[in-house]
Design a protein around this nucleic acid. Sequence first.
DNA 1: AATGAAAGACGGCGAAT
DNA 2: ATTCGCCGTCTTTCATT
Lengths: 153, 153
Amino acid sequence: MAFRLDDTDRKILTELQADASRSLDEIARAVGSSKTPVWNRIKKMRDAGIIRQQTVLLDAEALGFEATFFVLIRTSEHEAEWQRKFLATLRARPEVQEAHRLAGDIDYILKVRVKNARAYDQFYQALISEVRIYNVTALLSMEEIKSTLALPL
Amino acid sequence: MAFRLDDTDRKILTELQADASRSLDEIARAVGSSKTPVWNRIKKMRDAGIIRQQTVLLDAEALGFEATFFVLIRTSEHEAEWQRKFLATLRARPEVQEAHRLAGDIDYILKVRVKNARAYDQFYQALISEVRIYNVTALLSMEEIKSTLALPL
DNA sequence: AATGAAAGACGGCGAAT
DNA sequence: ATTCGCCGTCTTTCATT
């Protein structure tokens, strides 16, 4: 899984992360190379799965998604079947933007993005009706200070 | 800031979120329209800031970013100057992918992505040396179950 | 591994409906 | 607000060094 990047690869990824809408020529100029080699490198990284997806970042607030919750979950269940169902539920729910299994006494953390507090409650009710959960703490975000996916290469 | 989207706008955004590398013609076909109207709508949404950025999603693990922490922060300081400095620090630190100010007894949550536990410790030491913090809990992710930015439009 | 050329596809925009 | 269609630019490939 460890992919060897050289300096040029890293520069290309940095440029693409910052703005993937630019033309190959512009990217090439920015990294001090030219079209074809840059194109070949991008293709290689795409094929290797380093570059997963090309997408657009939307303004969630402007689209009416005004509430973000971080949800800390403790469970007493650790059977395979319970976990399978829990994960399937999380994956199926579009308001769940992130879900991680944790080390320590909190078992899972979710990031849930919804239109309002009511929509969160609906999600919460649906979740606990589908799987047994021992303890849930919801942290409500008041302000998104920073949000980026960019990796510091 | 509330932007009025119609059904076609929503479909376009859904398609772009799923794969922004496709041509205008393909997007247009997918949403049941044609090139120019789709182009005009995208331009409008771009200008309105609904579409913020076009970017690539990278495979963090394959690039050696193997540790993700969620960091819960309590502070006793609530002065403007302290907060200004704290936010500036978070924004300047590339390992901080997300930072939210919270309601409730936990004041802030961070998502921190680093190469390994050592790199996290370096971040932590740098953070507490720059600003006074009352209490920090770091939650280590064992498994990323889900990660998406897609909003359910 | 990089350059240059070249075909075809695509974006961007205007005119017309 | 959509269709058609044009032109210039860009992607993608290949031959060459």
